[in-house]
């Protein structure tokens, strides 16, 4: 299988925007997922199909725990995105600016070309299909064909989007999903305007103007680090009433196994919490996992080594 991941060099910049940790570079997102088991949560729209909530797009929000873990492993560092952008945009003048505009222009031209080629291909395909249909129609009875006249088929090929989302699109404007139709809008050779996703390419990492402090994490961080060091994938767990949703492999492919809740070592746990968690976990076919860090235990320096975990299941007796 052809893999088209661009290589990413560590350390990776994590954008800090008003106390939240965000990732905008798709290569970084893929790299962290494959190499470091960091999933994050996608919170943006997918411009190809913007009127749905099943699939989300960039940016990706990282939990503070994830950001801290990456910083601690020296895989990533935090960049104050607002300060960086302010500095960059205020100093963007002359040659620097021309270079930036030129790169966008060439991207726009490329996109234009690709769209035109696609449109050409689509119309060719539609024409050839028409031809075969006509040839078929001569041999077989016409009643077997589709009830609508073949001319109606023509625009159909250029619309990527005739699914349920189209109703929405007609209200909200589903541009971008049907490039060939709008391809004629710009008849001249002007490049398409482009909105880049990231502000810097991954090889040219931003200098950190003022390094922000390490991410502030909740007490459950030690449990997070422990589970992560054991190779689990971890997602936020509020939906299942726990701290973390723990997956045995990539959540793209696997169901979660555990609903993890962190407690302090000497903390008294109400019986109702155990029963409630255990029942909920059993009902959704997951294990209710509790864990805590023994702050007095000796460790070999490995992170989250002094954490003990227990799994509670509802015995169906």
């Amino acid at each position: 299988m052809a893999q088209s991941f661009e290589s990413v060099s560590e350390p990776i910049p994590i954008s800090l925007v008003s106390g939240r940790y965000l990732l905008f570079d798709v290569n970084v997102v893929t790299y962290l997922r494959r190499t470091h088991h960091i999933c994050g949560t996608l919170i943006g729209s997918i411009p190809q199909n913007p009127q749905q909530n099943i699939f989300h797009g960039l940016p990706m929000e990282l939990m503070p725990e994830e950001a801290k873990l990456l910083v601690q492993k020296e895989v990533a560092y935090i960049v104050d995105d607002l300060a960086w952008h302010k500095q960059r945009y205020e100093s963007m003048k002359g040659e620097d600016k021309q270079k930036y505009l030129q790169s966008l222009r060439s991207a726009g031209l490329k996109a234009r070309k690709a769209t035109q080629e696609q449109a050409k291909k689509n119309s060719e395909m539609a024409l050839s299909r028409l031809a075969t249909q006509k040839a078929k129609g001569k041999k077989e009875s016409p009643a077997e064909g589709t009830p609508e006249p073949p001319d109606d088929k023509l625009p159909d090929t250029s619309f990527h989007d005739t699914s349920g989302a189209q109703e929405e699109d007609s209200i909200f404007g589903g541009e971008g999903s049907s490039p060939s139709r709008q391809g004629t809008a710009f008849a001249s050779n002007k490049p398409y305007p482009v909105t880049p996703t990231t502000s810097y390419a991954s090889p040219s990492l931003p200098q950190n103007p003022s390094p922000p402090p390490d991410p502030c994490v909740p007490l459950s961080y030690s449990l997070f680090a422990h589970l992560h060091s054991r190779g689990y994938y971890i997602m936020p767990g509020l939906r299942f009433g726990c701290n973390y949703n723990v997956y045995p492999g990539d959540p793209l492919r696997f169901h979660s196994h555990f609903l993890a809740t962190s407690f302090e070592w000497d903390q008294e746990i109400p019986m109702l919490d155990l029963i409630g968690g255990g029942r909920l976990g059993t009902a959704v076919k997951k294990g209710f996992l509790i864990g805590g860090e023994d702050t007095e235990a000796e460790t070999d320096g490995e992170w989250g080594d002094n954490v003990r975990t227990f799994c509670i299941e509802w015995g169906g007796m």
Partner: peptide, 13 residues
């Protein structure tokens, strides 16, 4: 997932 996310916003409309 990578392909879906690597989409660039081009204003063709």
């Amino acid at each position: 997932m990578h392909d879906a996310l690597s989409y660039t916003r081009v204003h063709t409309s």
